[in-house]
Design a protein around this nucleic acid. Structure first.
Lengths: 194, 194, 194, 194
DNA sequence: CATGAATGAGGGTTCATTCAT
DNA sequence: GATGAATGAACCCTCATTCAT
């Protein structure tokens, strides 16, 4: 593994474990087995590492989403399920990010913009997915406003399910993740044609 | 206003504005018009101020909730609406808290416990409220599992609506808050008797 | 007990327990059950308390010494023994003082002077005591230089026996104190007439 | 000279001059011509510097002792004399240490242990040295108890001679140090075979 | 005599970042 | 690419002391 990747991966693990605040750049360097100076050769500063982690999250997420799309016909409950659990995997892999998101964004305009882009894209994808399900007849016809709210509802649950568990002091495991899926299914159930 | 309150209030404003990380105890003292030493006369440390803010949030929240209960019959859509917007007010007043919640909790076991207590209590209240609505006939009969999911759904949206707006880069105003209420109504709509 | 005495007594206990450095004036006030302001009504500053403790040590020591003199004929081994163990009692009662003596003196000229006075007086007393023993025939005749060295030797052991135990990690109890007496007797033994 | 050594050496001088209490880490850094951060790059904290000073004292002392042993046959009065004045040199070089010893030890268990080790070793060395002198016929035969007391007596005087001068307000110079040697000789004189 | 809130200089320490090698 | 010593601003917090009441 290249040094740059080693830094990113080490940072991810440490950030998840202790939060960005309590992980120093020297700490990362040491854990990655390199010198502080070398870390700064590969990254301009700490923020830069966080940004790199976000880009990685976005790229990997996009890739995985393509795979889901290929395996499961879009617009079905199954594809929604798969997408949900895929996103949870990322939320978990990069959980420091979700935990501190607003704080991080508040102090880094560049990150804010990039996150905004990705977030918008994801919302669009969800919206289209639901619209497709409607067009294919899996869901009953919905007016635009209801469709909008439903989309956001699905997205909100998907985004914050891990935080919800976190806050409630619940472990993240197969069971609790499954409960998240159930919640989504429960939401959709009201709109299924049968 | 007493010094202790002045500190708490100043801290709340600064934390909301810049995040706990970027607000130093000396900042708070200066903004409150007192000496650093005096701040530490009233609070053992920075964490202690954060805890005090949580206690205040909890106490004020409880108080407000009682008022809502007295004005609106529990178990109605209206009371739910009122409770939602009341909670949003607190989420906004103490928004630093919600933003950094998991990070804060991760590093302060005492806060974690206190938050857990309050959170559990709130979930219980919501659950009972929905059950009452059902018993009164506003909602159609639901099995326990569905009722549990619905409760969590309502709670999740209530908790994270502000974060959702934050993340999406949306302003917090009457309009966006109202959209949160609508989402809740939309969720409930599926279970109303008519 | 008067407030002033309460402060002195509390300070002595705390200083012995934790050292002057780690005992704050507020700490003393709290333990004495009074307010910080009140402490400063009775003493100008922390140094002043330490000085008062020294004066008390000196006064009590003088008083006790008179008692020993009355009970045991001066110039006997027995009176030396009694004096030794009497001084150990004070060294123990005010052990913080002996522990930090040089440091305390270095930063407080007034204390330095007072301690010097008392110390000189004590040396004189010991010297005279030994001389008496010689004149009474308990000790064999000694030239002035030897007598001077012997006096200092006795005084040095008496002064530092507790520190010696402290340093060696030994408990201060009847047994270890007795060993100190034995050492003195051992020193004197070489000069006894029989 | 390396930075680490520069820090240690500077600390030693300042500690001797003003006592550990009144020397701040920033003082040391400034006097050593480095930044505060750099000091903390080489030492974890202030205690750590003090520990390093003790280790240096112990190491240098051991080294010097070996030299004395090679030059002067062990078990002679001369070797004792040399050892005494050698130790006084160290007591003087690291006099802050002896002055504050008990206080320092009280608040640093690690230091306490290390000091205990070294102290025990030194007592053993003295004991053996006296025993050798006896076996070689320089000293008359002594029973174990007397030998033990004599050993401790010698050690006590050696350890505290500088403190004794300090307390008495006497300068440390050739003359006063010589008086210490004389005291030891005076003690030994009683046991010499001739 | 007594209270206790208030002061403020400064202490130990951290950590993102730089730079000579 | 890499090292690791070095920087320095700033942080959290302490505590002897003061002062209005």
């Amino acid at each position: 593994m290249k040094t740059k990747d080693k830094i990113i991966e080490t940072a991810r693990l440490l950030f998840n474990e202790k939060g960005t605040r309590h992980v120093t750049t020297n700490h990362i360097a040491e854990a990655a087995g390199i010198s502080p100076g070398n870390l700064y050769y590969h990254f301009r500063n700490k923020e830069d590492i966080i940004r790199a982690l976000f880009e990685r999250l976005a790229a990997e997420g996009f890739e995985e989403y393509q795979k889901v799309l290929q395996e499961y016909p879009p617009g079905t409950l199954e594809s929604m399920d798969q997408t949900f659990s895929m996103i949870q995997t990322f939320n978990w892999r990069y959980r420091f990010f979700k935990r501190e998101l607003t704080a991080l964004i508040m102090n880094d305009p560049l990150l804010k913009e990039r996150f905004g882009d990705v977030n918008r894209m994801q919302l669009t994808v969800i919206g289209q997915s639901i619209r497709q399900a409607m067009e294919k007849g899996f869901l009953r016809p919905l007016d635009d406003r209801t469709l909008g709210l439903l989309t956001e509802e699905v997205w909100l649950v998907t985004l914050f399910w891990l935080n919800y568990l976190d806050i409630g002091g619940e472990e993240v495991d197969e069971q609790t993740l499954k409960r998240g899926s159930e919640m989504l299914r429960n939401i959709m159930a009201n709109y299924l044609t049968r």
